[in-house]
Design a protein around this nucleic acid. Sequence first.
DNA 1: GATGAATGAGTGTTCATTCAT
DNA 2: AATGAATGAACACTCATTCAT
Lengths: 204, 204, 204, 204
Amino acid sequence: MAEDKATREKLLDSAKREFMEKGYMKASLRTICKNAGVTTGALYFFFQGKEDLLGELVEEPLKGLTALIQHHFAEEAETVTGPVSLGADTADVRAAKEIVRFMYQYYDVFLILLTKSQGSRYEDIVSHFADWGEEHYRTLMGQVGESGVPNLDEYIIHWMIYTQINAFTHLLMHEPDVEKALAHIEKIVVFLVSGWNGMFGLEI
Amino acid sequence: MAEDKATREKLLDSAKREFMEKGYMKASLRTICKNAGVTTGALYFFFQGKEDLLGELVEEPLKGLTALIQHHFAEEAETVTGPVSLGADTADVRAAKEIVRFMYQYYDVFLILLTKSQGSRYEDIVSHFADWGEEHYRTLMGQVGESGVPNLDEYIIHWMIYTQINAFTHLLMHEPDVEKALAHIEKIVVFLVSGWNGMFGLEI
Amino acid sequence: MAEDKATREKLLDSAKREFMEKGYMKASLRTICKNAGVTTGALYFFFQGKEDLLGELVEEPLKGLTALIQHHFAEEAETVTGPVSLGADTADVRAAKEIVRFMYQYYDVFLILLTKSQGSRYEDIVSHFADWGEEHYRTLMGQVGESGVPNLDEYIIHWMIYTQINAFTHLLMHEPDVEKALAHIEKIVVFLVSGWNGMFGLEI
Amino acid sequence: MAEDKATREKLLDSAKREFMEKGYMKASLRTICKNAGVTTGALYFFFQGKEDLLGELVEEPLKGLTALIQHHFAEEAETVTGPVSLGADTADVRAAKEIVRFMYQYYDVFLILLTKSQGSRYEDIVSHFADWGEEHYRTLMGQVGESGVPNLDEYIIHWMIYTQINAFTHLLMHEPDVEKALAHIEKIVVFLVSGWNGMFGLEI
DNA sequence: GATGAATGAGTGTTCATTCAT
DNA sequence: AATGAATGAACACTCATTCAT
């Protein structure tokens, strides 16, 4: 039964374990095949090579996450009309929790993506998300107008976005339990919004 | 003479460039030696291997940073008597700036350490600093007593410390100019302290 | 229907293209199958392997050419009675032209055979033709008797036959247009007969 | 003693044997190393790879041959003043013999180059020589003026040059004995000059 | 007739490391 | 203090071929 599982699946499983353990670069296709109980040729029947193997493992969850974030970005763009309130309201928390929930469905995959993909075409994935976040931020700012919003220099914006992303990375790395992670993210949002408001000179 | 004592230094220089460019894992000792104008044998006369080469490059600045932080920890422990005020006072900013200044003296080394050391014994250096920071935090808490301090769970403490460390990492990665970095860190401290206070339910 | 009987043919077509492009050795059965829109299994249903695939592609034209040459050999044997005149008469030219015409009907196949078959059982096909030509030459000499014919050593005979064969190869390689090729071959025969007679010490 | 021979030399020797036996493409570096009694690493210490290995084997004799031919080309250009006589005089024969002698000094190398280099950067070496020969021929024609020289079309010129080159190739392939080769080449020159003159409509 | 999965040996190449000199 | 030769295991990847279905 368990051994009936299709070769492709066995390879993806084995690859996931190997990438997790050694990281993309140090991962050995030989080992992946051996642990899957298949020969190298089989791997190359299903995948085009090392990079493609990682790709197949990762692409779908990645698209899912992208869609999810896009959704939240759009929502936020509709909501924000006045000066960026950004209070610790439930909208932010709800969005963050949804993301957390989604990422924990593909726990291993996102862990690999965020911390074990050095050497692959995904090694700069965080940068891509950050750029994207920055773009979204600028759109938001444009909507609101510059009324009452202090001039945050590029660098600080960049850093804040990175910090947000790192919050998710840290969660995956240090909190294996989803429920606990969901509890943590709530506090983290409080922290981030407080920091944000602090920078704007607003009360919390 | 000028070229006499050089070999070891030439190797360290060449290694620094190679590690910067390719990261520890992809760095090639062959290339390091070639660029240094020396043979492999020479490298193995001065260093025990690849890992040791990185060690020699990194150990001194690392000790310097450790000492610097230790100093600030001690200072803070003396100062803090009442409930953790942690206001955006100059003490925090001054400490952060001193650290920034120090890291920028060894710009390349710390960049390697923080972003290019995957595969070496330093790949988890950030964790070590985080653990250390956590320990310090607990000491502080013990001093103050639990009076008036809300119970922050382990995880959140851990994350906040990571965020602090990542602030420095981000600076090195995205701001090559020290002076600008010093300006940035000021705002970052404001953000962090605001966040911190926000979590404690204090006004800023 | 139209697509029914096709598979074998599609494979042969695809193989022809692949052999032409990459030569026998570098040709990939995978690629041949892919371009034919079939799987490897299909190939192995119709052919015994790589070598057989080339064989099926080549055997028929090869037999045709053999028959054609055999015919000319026989004709020549009947005609030649006196000392080998071998003048630039129309018999030689007519024979050569017929061969050219035939080869250009299977342009690709003969090109593959003569220039792209290294690594296969046909890589020495030219030698076989040369041996055969030599045999024919000896038969002719026997008929004529040794009267007035200088003793050409084995090697020179061998070389002259090679040169004749290479004339056809060169044509295929450098002149894609049949009509032009037919024009060229005329001059080439003049050259060869002149050379031939020059060796025998005859005037042209 | 015999085993004292430097590793590099042993590798070149072993490579020469392997290339001769299997041709460049099918030659295995592993086998070359094994027969040389060395490991693959050693090969890569001395050579940059498979292609470079062949290069080192071949480059020097190739340069020698090029120089030799260049010398004869220059000589011929000085001599030819009237209409291209191209008689079976001793100049042509002497040149051809010198080339034969030189090639037989590096018997294996030139055999590899001319018949076993498919897949390497030398696979088209014959074309290069042919192009070069054509260029020389045109220079000569320019000197002589078009007086009395019939218009040979490009193709025929091309073919005649190939035929000349193939004479040397054939010699190497089928006549291992230098002295016999030198005897053969004499007759070959007679053949070629006769053919040449035949084409020009001259008596021999 | 034909599929598609799988084999297993093979390829050229790279690497950190060792060591006699 | 340093050279330069050499090791040997590992790497990702390709191939013609087989065979149950």
